[in-house]
Design a protein around this nucleic acid. Structure first.
Length: 381
RNA sequence: GGAGAGAUGGCUGAGCGGUUAAAAGCAGCAGACUGUAAAUCUGCCGGGCCACGCCCUACGGAGGUUCGAAUCCUCCUCUCUCCA
């Protein structure tokens, strides 16, 4: 991409019903969409070295403004050549603005019109994030895609509070955009809880601004699944067709399929990496808890349908052994597999859209994945 | 041979007259995890049952004191430490 070109360029390649197949050109390579972005909050996809991550082949990963501004700090990060160089990562990077930390670290912050005062969860020192500061930090990190600074309202608060929060997010969106530079693309975020009218208002507000992409935030934060899906299906199709659509923080394999069906192009979620470290592994036949006693003597690969390093190299019995003994290799093997599983799922989704068979792919995947049992042992006699 | 200390649920280990089916940790079994304060957290964990209550069996063994004992007394068995 020429130096003078846009921050990113999105091309919508194909549509299959509501599902979209596209491509995002960035200064760090092209991203085939729909895409799943592994989460690397502190410039690290937990338990993986950068070369292990690279070998898995994701085109883009996440990092987090709040966590990185605390450590190592933006001055140091900038001095060290930016986040790509810092972590030795050649692919694209999207950073979250820190808005989600307003939600997850609610007890140690104070929200004002101007911005948010945080107390560091590490050492208690006070820090300030505003739309301008958050975007500035993301620019200085050198990420390919930055996120507007938003407030993610907790589920269960009153509609009037959601509306108040949304108004703040919308005002912050304009200020975030003012702070955009050519170094990083900037996405706006649609909030509004589970209220159709607020979501509609948010879409109109954000879509009218010159963001490089539009995200749906504030889903899968505790609301019932049917409300999440309802909000997703209501909101996603209203997002600008010619720009990337990003569903933040979602989700399960089934959620990804629902998101794609609703017209989402980008996803991120801690689920594959966190669950890997906690012993829950995704397979083509459903989730399994590798610590379960029934895998103690199971010589079969974790997922016979998977070709990742883990599945090619070791057995379920060995993975269980490593996990219950707290071996570091368990985290590495598990993470390699779960991330591979998610990336493979997205690959399958992209192929199916290209061949107009997304609906069938989705049905097929879900019928096998079901919810739960993935025990390859023969039925007891 | 002598002098001490001690034996508690798979293990370590509290309790030292009633509120004790018995703290806590570990092990074991299961579950959760959705823009990562997470290699974290939660539940179960003697047995049985027509189970939100009841019945068995339980603190080395056998007796005893007491309304009531894992807790007090006697004897026995075994373990550990120190001195010979």
């Amino acid at each position: 991409m020429p130096e003078t070109a846009a921050r990113i360029a999105f091309t919508l390649l194909h549509e299959d019903s509501g599902a979209r197949r596209g491509r995002i050109a960035t200064r760090h390579g092209a991203i085939e969409t729909p895409v799943f972005m592994p989460v690397g909050t502190r410039a690290s996809v937990k338990s993986l070295t950068t070369d292990q991550l690279t070998a898995l082949g994701p085109e883009i990963v996440l990092c987090n403004t709040y966590h990185l501004m605390l450590r190592p700090g933006i001055d140091l990060l900038e001095q060290l050549g930016g986040i790509h160089e810092f972590m030795g990562w050649k692919g694209a990077i999207l950073s979250d603005s820190g808005g989600f930390q307003l939600f997850s670290l609610a007890s140690i912050r104070k929200i004002r019109e101007e911005g948010v005062e945080f107390r560091s969860h590490i050492d208690g020192t006070t820090h300030f994030l505003s739309p301008e500061a958050a975007v500035d930090i993301q620019n200085r990190m050198g990420v390919d895609i930055a996120m507007a600074f938003d407030e993610c309202p907790a589920y269960g608060i009153s509609k009037s509070e959601v509306e108040r929060s949304l108004s703040l997010t919308d005002r912050w969106a304009r200020r975030s955009l003012e702070a955009r530079r050519d170094t990083s693309a900037l996405f706006g975020i649609v909030q509004g809880g589970t209220h159709h009218d607020l979501r509609k208002r948010a879409v109109e507000e954000i879509a009218a601004l010159d963001f490089d992409g539009v995200a749906i935030g504030g889903l899968s934060v505790g609301e019932p699944k049917n409300e999440m899906l309802d909000t997703l299906r209501f909101t996603a199709p209203q997002l600008p067709r010619e720009r990337p659509r990003y569903l933040m923080g979602v989700g399960t394999p089934a959620d990804l399929l629902d998101g794609v069906a609703a017209g989402i192009d980008m996803f991120d979620c801690v689920m594959p990496t966190r669950n890997a470290r906690n012993g829950t592994l995704f397979t083509s036949l459903g989730k399994i808890a590798i610590k379960n006693a029934r895998f103690a003597a199971d010589k079969s690969p974790l997922d016979p349908a998977c070709s990742c390093v883990t599945c090619r190299t070791v057995s379920r019995a060995y993975l269980r052994h490593l996990f219950i003994n707290g071996e570091i290799a368990a985290l590495v093997y598990n993470t390699i597999h779960n991330v591979s599983f998610y990336l493979d799922l997205m690959g399958g989704i992209r192929h199916s859209i290209a061949s107009n068979s997304f609906g069938a792919f989705r049905e097929s995947f879900l019928s096998r994945f079901a919810d739960g049992e993935a025990d390859s042992d023969p039925a007891p006699g």
